[in-house]
Write a protein that binds this DNA or RNA. Structure first.
Length: 109
DNA sequence: CCCTTGACGCGTT
DNA sequence: GAACGCGCCAAGG
């Protein structure tokens, strides 16, 4: 536990994201206590490729923009996955973001 | 060892 | 309301 890396923690939280919901890098960072280091969450996600259980497509930036879509095998794949879960995506941006936003700080609290 | 980049966030202009 | 700059931590060159 004490050896739990920040990255592993990010993966764990990402795996807890329910279907049809999304979260922001900042929300995860804040939950981990590193709210100022949202970038680390994104960097951690870069290594999430080692864990297929980590739904990186459900993690977007603070405005619901699919900033990480370029890191997928196919940029369109991310939007497809989100739409498949009932999430509206328009112009690479999550619609009704506030409604589908899954905040670990509140949901897991 | 120093500099640059990176899937972000927030304050200020 | 959009654009810009700074802060954050880590990894690659």
């Amino acid at each position: 536990m004490d050896k739990y890396s920040f990255f592993d923690n990010v993966y764990e939280v990402a795996k807890l994201i329910p279907k049809g919901r999304v979260t922001s890098y900042g929300a995860i960072a804040a939950y981990l206590g590193a709210k100022s280091s949202a970038r680390m969450v994104g960097w951690a996600m870069n290594g999430a490729g080692s864990d297929p259980d980590v739904p990186a497509h459900r993690v977007v930036n603070h405005i619901g923009l699919l900033t990480g879509k370029h890191h997928f095998n196919d940029p369109t794949h991310m939007q497809t996955l989100l739409e498949a879960e009932g999430i509206e995506v328009k112009n690479d941006k999550v619609q009704h973001f506030k409604e589908v936003l899954w905040d670990p700080m509140k949901e897991l609290l």
